[in-house]
Design a binder for these strands. Structure first.
Lengths: 146, 146
DNA sequence: TATTGTTATACTCTATAACTATA
DNA sequence: TATAGTTATAGAGTATAACAATA
């Protein structure tokens, strides 16, 4: 039996769905000097935040199939931004970590999508509003991982 | 010269960027009985909300090129969910509107991504938190369109 | 047997370039 | 000239299916 879904949740879901598409397209359009694709940026940031990980773990965290993650990692390896080292205990697997170039890329992510979005938020929203956005991202993430 | 971007805006931008990818992948994974692609759903909802529109107008609002919008519209027309009628004053153009089947599809969007997301929000968040999410989507949209 | 990863293939979404028809 | 739309082509991102190696 379907539990009743409050009007507000339906509205929030509809708004979120459309906003997600729009935001992604805006980000994609910011190509500039940033050679990284969106999926590549996601993975680079994740490894930076969480440390070395296996392909499977990255795929699970990013919610893609291992084959899809493999394609993304291949591109990052080809660009010299990450590297594989043998897994210490599992010979089937490798640990993926940032190279020096990968860390440098993250630090110079200015002039890229990240900067464009930061600036858009900073210039249009006040401190209280930005706090609301931060709180909302946490709430949405919690709902997605429930 | 780059104006200083507050720490909080940078944090909000990073969180938003990654959340956008994750949310989109979760939505894509909900295929079920819903035959519409994400881009198709976006357009169908938009026409329903805003009424008949030209291809160019839809492309501008959805932030895609006219060629991309044409592909999406072709699929929706093939599915019988929208239709073209001649533009009253511009013979180069057409007005795109929902068919009866298109309206029916929107109404029976239960069992689809929209329902999955609504339920996730409703089950994990309380009323005050959902209100925060709704407010945040409005704020983000404002920043994107600034 | 279950898990980690690879190879092969296909579909969605979007873009750029070059074009036609109409305004 | 400028705008609305089309045709052709390509790349990013993702998936499923079938497989090999190791746990």
């Amino acid at each position: 039996m379907a539990k009743d879904i409050p009007e507000a949740a339906t509205r929030a879901a509809a708004d979120l769905r459309m906003l997600t598409s729009l935001l992604r397209r805006r980000l994609m359009a910011i190509t500039k000097d940033d050679a990284l694709s969106l999926a590549q940026s996601d993975v680079l940031v994740r490894i930076d935040r969480e440390g070395p990980a296996t392909l499977s773990a990255l795929a699970a965290e990013e919610r893609v199939r291992p084959q899809s993650m493999a394609a993304t990692l291949d591109a990052l390896i080809a660009a010299g931004l990450i590297e594989r080292t043998p897994h210490p205990t599992d010979r089937r697997s490798s640990l993926i970590s940032l190279t020096a170039a990968g860390r440098a890329t993250l630090e110079t992510a200015r002039g890229s999508r990240q900067e464009w979005l930061s600036r858009a938020l900073a210039e249009e929203l006040d401190d209280e509003e930005i706090a609301v956005v931060i709180r909302a991202t946490g709430l949405i993430e919690r709902a997605l991982n429930r």
